[in-house]
Write a protein that binds this DNA or RNA. Structure first.
Length: 766
DNA sequence: AGGTACTCTTTTTTT
DNA sequence: AAGAGTACCT
C-alpha cells in the first residue's frame, strides 16, 4: 500500500531545534552522552538511547534490555530538551507493555506522563477516532466490536443475506475480512476472480454497511479508519505529523502492513522513528504480522542506521548457544548473535517420556527437586505449544498438591455474564447497536422468541433502521414483550442519567433481571461474583483520573465516561483473573510467554506434529515461524532448561505415536544432558528414579496391546521406531494383515504417513 | 421456551 | 476428550 506522497517516503531528517546537524558523529553529542540516565547501560544500549535525530532500527535480541532502552530513550529525549512530552508517540502491541513503559518512565523522569501518547496501536487509533469522530464519519457513540461480537455480527448478516453458512462459514469470513482490512483493502478494492470470492466480497461490502449503520467498529476497522482519516484529511495529518517529533515503536516485527502504513502517514518531514524489534521473535505472522516491515523500514527509513543489542542479561551460556544454533537454521534473517558473560551454566536437560502422563510425572518430580534446590515456584514455567496440553499437566500438578497458575483462557470482559451486562450498557449508550440488542433482548428470557425477532428484522430492513428503532416503532401493535423491553431500556436511560458509572451498572443489574437470574441459577454463584466485580471494575475505572481522561474531547462527561468504559472493556479484555498465588508454577503457551523470563523452564511436548505443529506446515515459511517460536521458548530460561517429549500422547481422544521434534536435532549434542534413553517400547516403565504413584498408565497399556497379535506383524509392532531406506526414521502407527499381506502404517518425519507392505518395504527396527 | 441428544471440530492470540 | 453449536423433542 502506498501512503500519500506527501508523507510516505523517508524524507531526510531535518535537524531538530536542539539536535545538531543530522548524522553528526556520535562523539558530537558527547555532552549528552554523559547524562545520568545512561548509567549502567552498555555501549550499544547507550548508542541506541542517544541516537541522533534520525530514523533508526534497533535489533534487540531476547533479554538484551529492549524495554529499558526504549524507555530510557524517551526519558533522555525529554530531559535533554530535545522534545516535549507532547511530541512523543510510543506504540506497543499490548496494554501491558504500554503500562510497563509508563511505569518505568515515571520512575525515571518527574513528568506528567499523561501528556505523552503511549499505547497500543488500537488504543491510539481509538483515541484518534473518538477525538475526530465527525471527520472519520462515525457516530459519536460508536462502539467497538470484539472478536466475538464481530463474528456474531457476520453470522447475523450471512443469515439475513440468505447465504449458505456451510459454504461461507462466519469464522472464515471474519478472517477474510480482517485479513483484507489489515492490508488496507476495502470491499470496493478487493480482487475477485471467481464466483465464490465475488460472493465473499459482497458479504464484506454488506458487513461494512451494517457496521456503519450500527455504529460498530471492529478491531481492524479501528486501524483502517484511523489510517483513512489521516490519509484523507490533510490538515489533520499535518497537524499530527508536526506534533509527533519522535515515534517509538516496540515489537516492530509484529506490525502488519496497515500498522506500518499508519506509521508512515504519521511520519512527517520532521518526525523521527525509532523502531525496536527482533526478527527472530516474530511469531505472529499467522495473524497478519509481516517481518518484511523490518527490512522495508531499514531500507527506506533507517538506511543502515541499525544498532544491534546482542548482549543478553538473562540466560546462561549454554542456553544461548542452543538458541543461536537453532535459529541459524532460518534463512533470511537480519542477523544477530546473542552472547553473555554469565558463564556456560548447566547443560540442557532432555527428557523422553513413554507417554504424556509420564512426561507430566517427570515434571512434577523435577519441580519438587527444583524446590529443594531453592528455586521458587513462580520462577518455574511450563511452556507448551497448544493450550490443550495444559490439562495433563494441571492434573498431575493438582494431584501432587503443587500450586500452579494457568495463563490464557477466558478473560474477564469476555465472560458471558459480563458481556450481557455490558450489552445493556451499550444499548444505553447507542441504541443502534444491534449486536448488543440481540444479545440481551431475550436475556434473561422475557418471552421474545425467534418469531418476534424475525418480524423485527424484517421491519428493520424495511425501515432501514436498527432493531431497536424498529421495535420502538412497532411498539403499539407488536405485543407487550418487545415493547416492554424497549420501555426497560428507555427506563434505564432515564433512571441512570444522574448516577455514577458503578451505580448505573448496579442499577442495571437489578432492573434487567440479570442479578435475579443468576441468583436463581444453580451454578450462578461465580457469575454473580463476576457481575459484582464488574461494578467494582467500573468504580476503579471512574476513580482513575488517568483512565478517565484518556481521551481529550470536549463533550459532556457522564456520557463520555460511559463510552470510555465500554471502550476500555473492549480494548483491554481484562487481566486474566485475580487470585494470583505467589508461589505458583506458571503454565502458558509459548506465545504468551514472549517477553517473560523464568529461572527454570520446561518446554513440553517437543514432538513432530505438535511442536513444530503440523498445521503450521501449510503456511508459507511455517516451519521457520515454528522455529522462531522454539527460539522464543528457549530464551525464556535464565538458568535451567528442560526439553521434554513423549512417545505417545492423547490427542483428540486417541493415542498418538510421536517422533521427537526435529528441533531437538538442531541443538548441539554437547549442550544436552539426556536424562534417560528409553529403548523404544521396552516393557513397562522407564529409567529415571521415579518413586511414587503406581504406573498403570498409557505406557503399560500400550505395551500390552502392542504385544498382542492383532497389532503386530512380521516382527514389528505398533509404536515401534523403524527406519526406512528412503523415508528415514518413523513410528509404526498401526498394522494389518498377515504373512505376505502384512502392512504397517508408519509416520515418518519428512515423508508423512505411509502404508508399507512388509514384503516389499525394507523396514528395519531403529 | 427449555432441555437433551447428536455432530463437529480441534494452533498459536492481542486488540 | 471435551466443548461448542445445532437440531429436535417435549
Amino acid at each position: 500500500m502506498n501512503a500519500p506522497s506527501s508523507s510516505s517516503i523517508a524524507a531526510t531528517s531535518i535537524p531538530e531545534a536542539f539536535g545538531g546537524p543530522v548524522g553528526a558523529p556520535v562523539g558530537g553529542a558527547g555532552a549528552l552522552r554523559e547524562h545520568p540516565l545512561l548509567n549502567g547501560l552498555n555501549e550499544p544500549q547507550k548508542q541506541a538511547v542517544c541516537l541522533p535525530a534520525e530514523h533508526g532500527l534497533i535489533l534487540a535480541g531476547a533479554g538484551s534490555g529492549k524495554t529499558r532502552v526504549l524507555t530510557t530513550r524517551i526519558a533522555w529525549l525529554m530531559q535533554t530538551g530535545q522534545v516535549s512530552p507532547q511530541g512523543i508517540l510510543a506504540v506497543t502491541f499490548t496494554n501491558k507493555a504500554a503500562r510497563e513503559m509508563l511505569t518505568r518512565l515515571s520512575a525515571m523522569v518527574p513528568i506528567n506522563v499523561r501528556s505523552l501518547w503511549v499505547g497500543t496501536f488500537h488504543g491510539l487509533c481509538h483515541r484518534l477516532l473518538r477525538t475526530h469522530w465527525r471527520a472519520a464519519r462515525l457516530p459519536e457513540t460508536f462502539q467497538i466490536l470484539d472478536t466475538g461480537d464481530q463474528q456474531a455480527a457476520i453470522k447475523r448478516l450471512i443469515k439475513a443475506m440468505g447465504v449458505d453458512e456451510e459454504r461461507f462459514p462466519p469464522r472464515d469470513m471474519m478472517h477474510y475480512i480482517n485479513a483484507l482490512k489489515e492490508q488496507g483493502i476495502r470491499s470496493g478494492q478487493a480482487e475477485a476472480h471467481d464466483a465464490h470470492t465475488r460472493r465473499k466480497v459482497e458479504i464484506y461490502a454488506e458487513y461494512e454497511a451494517q457496521c456503519q449503520r450500527e455504529g460498530a467498529v471492529d478491531f481492524a476497522e479501528l486501524l483502517l479508519r484511523a489510517y483513512e482519516l489521516l490519509q484523507q484529511d490533510e490538515a489533520l495529518r499535518i497537524h499530527y505529523q508536526q506534533r509527533f517529533r519522535h515515534i517509538l515503536v516496540d515489537e516492530f516485527q509484529d506490525t502488519n502492513p496497515l500498522q506500518y502504513a499508519w506509521l508512515q502517514l504519521l511520519c512527517g518531514p520532521q518526525t523521527v522513528i525509532f523502531a525496536v524489534g527482533d526478527d527472530d521473535q516474530s511469531i505472529y505472522a499467522f495473524r497478519g504480522a509481516d517481518v518484511a516491515n523490518m527490512r522495508a523500514f531499514e531500507r527506506n527509513y533507517a538506511k543502515g542506521n541499525v544498532i544491534r543489542l546482542e548482549q543478553n542479561y538473562r540466560s546462561h551460556g549454554n542456553i544461548l548457544t542452543a538458541a543461536n544454533a537453532l535459529i541459524t537454521n532460518n534463512a533470511d534473517r537480519l542477523g544477530k548473535n546473542l552472547w553473555t558473560d554469565a558463564g556456560e551454566g548447566e547443560l540442557i536437560r532432555v527428557f523422553q517420556g513413554v507417554s504424556d502422563l509420564d512426561e507430566a510425572r517427570y515434571i512434577v518430580d523435577e519441580i519438587r527437586e527444583l524446590t529443594r534446590e531453592g528455586f521458587s515456584r513462580h520462577q518455574m514455567a511450563l511452556l507448551y505449544r497448544s493450550n490443550a496440553q495444559s490439562r495433563v499437566l494441571e492434573h498431575a500438578l493438582f494431584q501432587a498438591g503443587i500450586a500452579y497458575r494457568v495463563y490464557g483462557g477466558l478473560r474477564f470482559f469476555e465472560r458471558l455474564e459480563v458481556k450481557h451486562a455490558l450489552a445493556y450498557l451499550r444499548l444505553i449508550a447507542n441504541q443502534d447497536d444491534d449486536t448488543a440488542f440481540l444479545r440481551v433482548v431475550n436475556f434473561p428470557t422475557r418471552g421474545i422468541g425467534a418469531r418476534s425477532l424475525e418480524a423485527l428484522q424484517v421491519e428493520a430492513r424495511q425501515l432501514n433502521s436498527s432493531l431497536y428503532n424498529a421495535a420502538a416503532s412497532l411498539t403499539g401493535k407488536a405485543g407487550t414483550a418487545v415493547s416492554q423491553f424497549i420501555r426497560l431500556i428507555e427506563g434505564l436511560r432515564v433512571e441512570t442519567s444522574g448516577l455514577t458509572l458503578p451505580e448505573v451498572i448496579d442499577h442495571l443489574l437489578d432492573r434487567s433481571g440479570l442479578r435475579q437470574h443468576y441468583q436463581a441459577e444453580k451454578d450462578g454463584q461465580d457469575r454473580l461474583e463476576n457481575l459484582e466485580e464488574l461494578v467494582n471494575a467500573a468504580a476503579t475505572f471512574a476513580d482513575d483520573p488517568e483512565a478517565a481522561h484518556n481521551i481529550d474531547r470536549e463533550t459532556g462527561e457522564a456520557t463520555s465516561l460511559l463510552a470510555d468504559f465500554l471502550a476500555h472493556a473492549a480494548l483491554e479484555a481484562g487481566e486474566h483473573q485475580a487470585g494470583d498465588q505467589d508461589e505458583a508454577v506458571q503454565l502458558m503457551t509459548v506465545h504468551s510467554a514472549k517477553g517473560l523470563e523464568f529461572s527454570a523452564v520446561f518446554i513440553v511436548g517437543l514432538e513432530q506434529g505438535l511442536f513444530p505443529h503440523e498445521n503450521a506446515m501449510m503456511a508459507r515459511d511455517g516451519l521457520e515461524e515454528e522455529r522462531r517460536l522454539m527460539y522464543v521458548a528457549i530464551t525464556r530460561a535464565r538458568q535451567r532448561l528442560y526439553l521434554c517429549h513423549a512417545q505417545t500422547r492423547m490427542l483428540h481422544g486417541q493415542t498418538r505415536y510421536c517422533l521427537p521434534s526435529s528441533f531437538l536435532d538442531e541443538l548441539p549434542e554437547a549442550l544436552l544432558q539426556r536424562i534417560n534413553t528409553v529403548p523404544a517400547w521396552s516393557a513397562g516403565s522407564y529409567s529415571t528414579g521415579w518413586s511414587d504413584a503406581p504406573a498403570v498408565d498409557m505406557a503399560t497399556r500400550v505395551s500390552a496391546r502392542a504385544a498382542g497379535a492383532a497389532e503386530s506383524a512380521g516382527g514389528f509392532h505398533v509404536g515401534q521406531s523403524v527406519v526406512h531406506a528412503k523415508f528415514g526414521a518413523g513410528v509404526i502407527l498401526s498394522a494389518e494383515g498377515r504373512g505376505d499381506e502384512a502392512r504397517v502404517q508408519v509416520r515418518f518425519g519428512q515423508a508423512g504417513t505411509k502404508w508399507l507392505a512388509l514384503a516389499y518395504a525394507k523396514l528395519e527396527a531403529a
